[in-house]
Design a binder for these strands. Structure first.
Lengths: 212, 212, 212, 212
DNA sequence: CATGAATGAGCTTTCATTCAT
DNA sequence: GATGAATGAAAGCTCATTCAT
């Protein structure tokens, strides 16, 4: 990918996160970069394509970040995973926050989202099954597991709007709250072994100090 | 409130839910009602005010719907409450789905949202404390309770986007999935007494049949 | 139709004829009239609609101009009909001259054109049949008649481009040449009775003087 | 002319005929050929020049195609001439169909057209005079001949728009109709000798079968 | 010869809002 | 109360053309 294309995407991501994707015009992006609109359209055939490229970048980064769990008796590292994950997701906040508006305005983006979500859900299921197998997470019936996973997805992607409305203005603080949201969500599903051997509880304690 | 004002709000709500708030123009609302744009602006000074009024209507209805729990030893009626609650929330879906865009475009709406969320959270907390007091829900430390409640809010308000992206096209089916999301979310917090005496488990079973 | 709507159409017709329909932007029209573009779009939902309205106006005027031939033994008045017809057609020159470009850019205009042409062809056929019946025009086989009529249409609608390229700059002179094109085209089909009793030959003579 | 220049013209002609000259961008031409826009502008200083070159190519081919009638007593071969002529004109349809737009957008193209038309008219006149001399076509006064020739030009160049609007979608069928337009146009001017000795009538019969 | 990045003006269209009547 | 004409800014996008390399 050419440098300029990268630059456009970077500026677009920045502005989308700052002001919202819907509220950011192609001219805004061009102006911010100091190029002409025509030039922007030389690299991308329309705004939809910009969004799709951003989403692909996002998904690519997601893939490289996957904690590949080998089939070993090892507890999941909640802290590292979540801090890392959410930190990086902040760079693409607009995707979660404006998902519905984006979908209804740019239909082909919806397809990209649908593919992306399938991958995420599979990864999450594998993670759960692994932790169940080695006794870190309690046995769960399959149908319940499906809903636990969808609840995880909802919390992972939608926590931020809650803290925005609750007027937490510091992005970093928000993110820590978001991590706590997920840690507390997971807590009841852990076995005694899970609570004793994973870093879930210590992570909670560590983050709660920071939050105060 | 004058009849006309009410009519405008009703049409606005209808269109916002159908096509999205951002995609619905003031002219569109006026046309649908069969009045002039000028007249619409006689009743509301701008689009922002319409949204705020809708949100107030929404909050008012929320209040009247509150299951006022007396201080009695009685299990919470999950089924009736959630079905009723979510059914009614469908009438204001756009608020949840476009929350972020609305906030960033109409800053004064944010304040209304902030007030509204405080009320909701207080209600939810009372409910939890009541059920804990009578042994239907496990004892929970205060800080954990805060996050359980924020997680509840996130799931209650944000479940729909998950099922939309997962291509569940029937609104009714989506809503039932949403109810299941919350029921499964609550399940681990219930005591044995809670599981035996509340209708949470039977509600789950009942809804799972329908969903298939 | 409101005055403003009429004004917009009039300015549009003027500019379309002067600079071409394709080369005239909606902003040109608005500027020429001294109104805002927004206002123009208040009256017409898009440029296509403007064109269709113009074409309808055109066809309506065509209808009122139809020489309704009763079933009497009377020679067709070439002069009055053609001078009148072509004079008025000058006001809508762009339709003939840019037909192909308009059709390919505004598909729904094509349908309007198609309907219009059918009416025209029917009228022309009736006229021929009437003149044949009373011996002013020679007997013609049906299939030949079809092609004579299509040739008439081609000449009636497309003569102007010939005289433009041949550098006849005066619109009035061009029109007289156009009339002569059609008179000469008709000439071979007239019977002796036709030549003696209609004003075709005298019209030719009259116009030729003017042209020189 | 360099090969590359030729290639550009060929692609331009192809695209102009397919999608219209006005609707074909320089970038489109370059892409179709697989060269850069910059390179295209190395060979032609602007789009206008491309059109002029195409028109010159067109006129050159016209010249080579001229049936040079020697001063012999021989009937004109309508069929071969017209099929050949119109077949080849299909390759430059856009010139006839968009003539007016092209002229008003690219004024210097107009001059080229003007020169071209003069040549054509002269050829046609020679042809008529030759056939009159040997009694195939009736005697015609000079001024009438001028108009017959201009009518021929109009029909030869403008027939297609009629059949396009009449929804004849097959190019080949359209062309045959166009040939018939001209054959029928010529018919009344032929003498008995002309009708008996030329292939005009047989051509008509032959083509009418195909058209049905 | 050839590339392809860059420009800037222009296009059609939408929309919240105002205001004279 | 009610109308609806009017505004002007802004949106997404296209295109002929230029120019450094």
């Amino acid at each position: 990918m050419s440098n300029r294309k990268r630059e456009i995407l970077d500026v677009a991501i920045k502005l989308f996160n700052e002001k919202g994707c819907i509220n950011t015009s192609t001219r805004h992006i061009a102006d911010d970069l100091g190029i002409s609109v025509g030039n922007l359209y030389y690299y991308f055939k329309n705004k939809e394509e910009i969004i799709i490229y951003i989403y692909q970048t996002f998904m690519d980064e997601v893939s490289t970040r996957i904690t590949l769990l080998k089939d070993d008796d090892i507890a999941f590292d909640y802290y590292e995973f979540l801090i890392d994950q959410m930190d990086f997701e902040l760079n693409y906040r607009f995707i979660r926050l404006e998902m519905n508006n984006i979908i209804s305005k740019y239909p082909s983006v919806k397809e990209a989202f649908q593919k992306g979500i399938q991958i995420k859900l599979k990864q999450m299921k594998n993670l759960f099954l692994h932790q169940i197998k080695y006794g870190y997470i309690k046995e769960i019936e399959d149908i319940e597991l499906e809903f636990i996973i969808s609840n995880s997805w909802i919390i992972i992607t939608q926590w931020e709007i809650f803290w925005i409305i609750n007027n937490i203005k510091d992005e970093r603080v928000r993110r820590e709250k978001g991590v706590l949201n997920l840690l507390y969500f997971m807590k009841p599903y852990l076995t005694t072994k899970g609570l004793e051997n994973s870093n879930l509880l210590t992570s909670i304690k560590y983050l709660e100090k920071g939050t105060k």
